[in-house]
């Protein structure tokens, strides 16, 4: 039954998409092209039961930008710059540790600033691990990493309700080598904005 619900939601989402783009014919703000991975029309995402980590990604429309208080081209450029940084700058962890390292603290401080500047944004914090642990334990460890980042941002004044958490353990590496350089990159918390 729940499977059916997903399907219904997916169909509804696509229908709404269609309505929005053909019916309203709204122009989007002119600006730099959207960075890849943001989820343009036709991307799986909203309502899809896929494991895509950019769940909830939908096109960044004028309407959504206005809801964030962005009305000028300059504001939009600034937002997109900060958004890119927010989503591309991971924090990293030591092996088998979920302790926030010193090098992660300024990055988290920047993330808190960004979230304070755009107080309606909500995010998902993803916890990841390197391949050396066992799969199931790494899911738990990844959760602790996401939780450490979550707690740090809560301590900096971000409303906990705005931040979801998930763990991918070692199942979604960004570096596929079998060496410390790759492992260090994979032991991370990654931040995804919902639109």
């Amino acid at each position: 039954m729940l499977r059916k619900n997903w399907l219904v939601k997916l169909v509804v989402a696509f229908l709404l998409f269609g309505l929005f783009f053909t019916g309203c014919g709204k122009k989007t703000v002119q600006g730099p092209p959207m960075p890849p991975g943001l989820g343009g029309p036709g991307m799986p995402g909203a309502g899809s039961p896929s494991g895509d980590s950019s769940f909830g990604s939908a096109p960044l429309t004028d309407e959504k930008l206005r809801a964030l208080g962005i009305t000028t081209e300059e504001q939009k450029r600034e937002f997109l710059r900060q958004k890119e940084q927010f989503e591309n700058e991971d924090i990293h962890f030591d092996f088998d540790s979920s302790v926030i390292r010193e090098d992660a603290k300024p990055i988290l401080a920047k993330k808190a600033e960004f979230l304070k500047k755009y107080p309606t944004l909500t995010i998902t914090i993803e916890g990841h691990c390197d391949e050396r642990g066992t799969n199931e334990y790494n899911l738990a460890l990844g959760e602790r990493r996401a939780h450490s980042a979550w707690q740090y941002l809560v301590n900096l004044g971000i409303n906990p309700e705005r931040m979801q958490m998930i763990s991918y353990g070692e199942e979604r590496p960004i570096a596929t080598g079998h060496d410390e350089a790759s492992w260090a990159k994979n032991r991370r918390a990654h931040f995804v904005i919902h639109f």
Binding site: S50, G51, T124, Q164, I166, S167
Partner: peptide
């Protein structure tokens, strides 16, 4: 089993 549903398990 554990299934991933977007950003939820």
């Amino acid at each position: 089993y554990i299934g991933y549903r977007g950003n939820r398990t």
